[in-house]
Amino acid sequence: MSFVILASVMVIAALGLLFARKPVHAALSLAVVMIGLAMIYAMLEAPFLFAVQIVVYTGAILMLFLFVIMLVGVDTSDTLKETIAGQKVLAIVLGTGLGAILITGVGQASIGTMRGLSSANEGGNVQRLADLLFSRYVIAFEATSALLITAAIGAMVLAHRERIDPKQTQTDLAQGRVADYAKSGKHLGPLPPPGTFARHNSNDTPALLPDGSQSTKSVPAILAGGRTDEGEDE
């Protein structure tokens, strides 16, 4: 019963992953599939795998996907233009082929009920897993962890950039601003906030200077629209 519910939710989410236009929606659908998978693990009496599936895949990997999608392409949606000639046709043919193979393959296999689960879980799922990981599979486990650490360090090395000039401290920045002021007269402090001394507190109401004239600097360039920010406050 719960499998039917979970499976249908997962299938709908998987279809959503395929047909969603926005990458964030696709990533969300993937998250639903992952959580559904975790719940199926929980149903199959694999609680540790359940927790790890959510922590690792949903919590970490998909979150990274989301970060990248959000920062790189906040507003991009998929274009339907083909970049490789004949890609669509090929994808349809190969996809149908794979589906056919899977359906015939799985359909002909006879899947019985679970066997040996109670003996595998004897003394607790977590304890048995730990037993296996740190005795029989200890070499594989350590090798995997070494591989993962290597990959992490590799990513750090590739992304690392040697600093050529010394890091600017807050003092340096402040002194630079003062020097700038001495050289070009560039204003030291923040720009005047919008609406100061004005009759409205809307962001597009320019601040009034003490002599009653309007300060163009006080309205953000986006809100000012056509107005350019060249005008100096006089």
Partner: peptide
């Protein structure tokens, strides 16, 4: 058997709310 891990896992789902709300 994995209650504390469960808490961590569910908390990581909660982060989605914040990320998605922001986006």
């Amino acid at each position: 058997p994995v209650a504390v891990l469960f808490v961590m896992a569910i908390a990581s789902i909660g982060i989605y709310g914040i990320v998605l709300g922001g986006w």
